[in-house]
Design a protein around this nucleic acid. Structure first.
Lengths: 199, 199
DNA sequence: CGGCTAACTGGCCGACCGGTCAATTGGGCG
DNA sequence: CGCCCAATTGACCGGTCGGCCAGTTAGCCG
């Protein structure tokens, strides 16, 4: 990286955060060293301690930053929508799937976070799922979706099906019979949307 | 742990593997030390090196053991079945879901493995999914399932929906609106099975 | 201009890491 | 019994870890 012409604490923090985000998400908290992060962000190890306290503090800051980006993006999409009908649900699935496709690091970040039992994103996630579930509930009451399933489970089902797809995509990329991202999405939507049609 | 009365290489290996499995799966490869594993399995660090070469060798052996258990169990279930109809698919979902519920460490093992980009289980997984997809294809040809979806995607969809549920279960255990394992499974099956009904 | 504070550096520390090696022990086999 | 080899031990190694601290530098404000 190019050196900053002048001292800028905010810029320095951002550069450290970006380098740490990449590496923590790619290889995991324990496998990344402070020395490596210092070199990658063009500062000294001591400076990272100065700004973030210790390694855990840096990791927390990385997660907070990434979660905030994710949360704001998702919430914006959720609130942009109009009437709660079947098409809205379909659209939400597509948007979520596309978001994950374009932000593979987010999937990995959530995976690491869940593995280490960190619950710092629980409330954020709960709120987003709650908003989605409310839309499903409205569509159920409008007779647009079958109403004998828990709206929260509807949202969770498609989140799970999308998230796990990208969590394992390198793994099954070239299996026989496995299609592309878009083909999987199409087939999932066929099953999911017909499975939710009212009687 | 109690000490072995007599020297038994096979038993020693098994005890090391078990202690390593627990800890690697709970906290990840990089966060576990050889010293800790030695103490936990009641042997010296040198003995672990004697039996498994180095830390990576032990991790590989742990994965190999766990994958073999998983693979044999799943294959047995897949081959026990009778005619390929809709009910068989439903039953496969239930069996897979129950297996993950009873073996939460397996979910974590796969998650770690995927995160670190290890493809050692790719062929095993591909074979199991292939077997399942073949059953789906048979049911499609028998007119028991809709035939305008890729059979591999059908299997992948339910695997993803089940796996990710358990990968995040601690995370959403007490969210408002979220039901129990069985309630989620019921709702997923409602959506999934109706979504796959032939026209 | 001068001083104060925060940004930033380099060197150092004790702890602990994975791994090695020579020595010891014990069980099985001729 | 006595040999032999694998199982097992404990001491030790060089390297690296996260963190600390005393000192330096640059911008900002009065």
């Amino acid at each position: 990286m190019t050196e900053p012409a002048t001292r800028d604490a905010e810029l320095t923090r951002a550069r450290i955060l970006e380098a740490a985000f990449e590496r923590f998400v790619d290889r995991g908290f324990a496998a990344v060293t402070m020395r490596e992060l210092a070199e990658a962000s063009g500062v000294t190890k001591s400076l990272i301690h100065h700004h973030f306290g210790n390694k855990e503090g840096l990791w927390d800051a990385v997660k907070e930053m990434a979660f905030a980006r994710y949360y704001l993006g998702q919430k914006e999409e959720l609130e942009r929508e109009g009437d709660a009908d079947a098409n809205l649900l379909r659209n939400s699935v597509v948007l979520y799937f596309r978001f994950l496709a374009e932000n593979p690091r987010v999937v990995r970040l959530f995976t690491w976070t869940h593995l280490e039992g960190d619950s710092s994103c629980t409330h954020m996630d709960a709120e987003l799922v709650g908003l989605g579930a409310e839309r499903v509930r409205q569509a159920q009451q409008a007779g647009q979706l079958r109403d004998d399933v828990n709206p929260t489970h509807v949202v969770t089902t498609f989140i799970n099906a999308c998230t796990q797809w990208f969590a394992t995509c390198e793994h099954h990329a070239d299996w026989p019979g496995m299609g592309s991202d878009e083909e999987y999405l199409d087939d999932f939507l066929k099953i999911f949307m017909r499975g939710l049609q009212p009687d």
